[in-house]
Design a protein around this nucleic acid. Sequence first.
DNA 1: GTAAAGTTTGTAAACGTTTACTATACTTGT
DNA 2: ACAAGTATAGTAAACGTTTACAAACTTTAC
Lengths: 333, 333
Amino acid sequence: MNTTIKDIAKKAGVSYATVSRALNGKYGVNPSTREEIIKLAEDMNYSPNAIARGLVKRQTHTVGLIIPDITNPFFPEVARGAEDLLEKKGYSVFLCNSNWEKNRENKYINLLIEKRVDGLVIAPSSSIVTDSDRKQFARLPVVLMSGVQAGCGTDSVVLNNIKGGFIAGKYLLEKGRRKFCFIGGSEDSFSVMERYEGFMKALEGYGSSVISQDYVKFGDYREKSGYRIMKSLILEKKIPDAVFASNDLLALGAIQAISEEGFRMPEDIAVIGFDNIAPASFRGVELTTVEHPKYRMGELAVSMLLERIEDPEKRGKEERLVLDPELIIRRTA
Amino acid sequence: MNTTIKDIAKKAGVSYATVSRALNGKYGVNPSTREEIIKLAEDMNYSPNAIARGLVKRQTHTVGLIIPDITNPFFPEVARGAEDLLEKKGYSVFLCNSNWEKNRENKYINLLIEKRVDGLVIAPSSSIVTDSDRKQFARLPVVLMSGVQAGCGTDSVVLNNIKGGFIAGKYLLEKGRRKFCFIGGSEDSFSVMERYEGFMKALEGYGSSVISQDYVKFGDYREKSGYRIMKSLILEKKIPDAVFASNDLLALGAIQAISEEGFRMPEDIAVIGFDNIAPASFRGVELTTVEHPKYRMGELAVSMLLERIEDPEKRGKEERLVLDPELIIRRTA
DNA sequence: GTAAAGTTTGTAAACGTTTACTATACTTGT
DNA sequence: ACAAGTATAGTAAACGTTTACAAACTTTAC
């Protein structure tokens, strides 16, 4: 069994209140007894029980981080940004993969509330915030990240996706491209649609001459999906001169199909991805893409959360932090 | 304030022991009262306090996962394997990045012990297990992963690195390569040295004619390091016909240097990496490498840990699970 | 009709802390 | 020498559960 404060008290011949005070550096205990107690604690291999402390203090110094999938190269950086700041502030973090399932996400939210985390950072599996979500979010500070609609009723930190799509489209246009293709992840995804919207906005004025609806395709967020979409487009003899994918994985898949079919990049077809995940910068890939400050996003989300945990005043104002994207020009466009 | 069991008891007009029993599906409460209590709990938005429960049951259904860096593409898969199984078993997981710092790792171990996790899965930042480690590990079930020496005194799941190095060397030899280069991460890393050892074993009988000491280089585990090492080797006119890197990131860096310098792969120089991280399979990369069952490793480590948590009998036997590597032949060798 | 057994409920202690309140023993200043 | 203040320590309640034990009531069996 673990040593407790009472064991120490007994050995030191004092009450356990004194031990608590001594160990927590509180005012009002004789320096010599304090010293003795600290030494005793060390000798007895004492480790304070954070569970018991959490019960009385009603806070656990723990937060939950719910993301769709840590295996998706977008999220490790977000997680790292979050964790680094949390660690510095003395918090621990529960990692939860929702696996893009609303159901698993909800189960986790409930579980974390039961475990009395001090707050929640969520990169939601789906853009829509349900009533049941809202009910849960009322119980504790929550900050949403990435792909969250304005007016969702919760604090959030997001990317300016519209701008991201816009700068990609604008660049391609300036490079003289005139036959565009858009490959998106899920049509239900808010951020995908925003990127699409921004992209189309850049193309305004050029109208349907530069992008026709059968060059706009949706799948899931995976490489394979980008590959399949691009491949079948090419096989149908629909050859664009520029492809904008709503994320890098999709773009990577598209690249694979494009080079398999013998087209050169960017000469024949230019490709721009989104997010600037690590593999995008590898030699032999060198994907032109839109930078998404992932680490920063995780960090900011946590910083907002901590503010709200520490100061209840700041809660419920539905603040929205918007990060700026940036075009990273490499080989493929 | 959150609803407690007592609030429910008051409203239902029963003692709170009864509420506890009802909610936990324990034997011995009248079906109709139980139903009423459950309904009441729902209406009152009751969420059981896992902290309080943890205090009395002396278990938290929580484990800690300490890894060097979730941003390193090796670890997300490990983490996912761990988390998937834990989730299924009703456990939550603390994610901790040691950032390869022994100091941060130790801080985390202490913190997690304070938070009374039921067990720990650690991918250590350094291969050596110190006395202070051992002292902490005696307090709770611990399973070590990856790069852990036999005889370290703790249960572990590892890869057969020697075999991994061996099959890489053997394959290269069979392909007629005769001028080898080895690029390793830290020399202090046990798994790097094992991979080296296996590699050299394959080359036995050929002796120093095929690999000289100035073709054996160490750096850190990052892409940049592989790039730098390979680049300077080539600039010194030391041109091997085969490179074996102790991990894929290093190999990716080496590839970059090699193609920048105008050599063809595998014709001029063959490259084999290690771990088979996701980017290794991308088009334009297609790195030949040694598969490391990462997801499985996370899963197995957790499964061992859970065994030990649930059955104290199984503790302290220093069991060692060894996974088998496998050569994945792609473009670069 | 009653003893035995079973069902349902309540009481109270325990888990390991923190902390408000109280009590005692020293210091000071006058 | 004594009132007032200060430094140090102790007591006990609280945090929200679970659970051993006891109590009350209901069935069942004969």
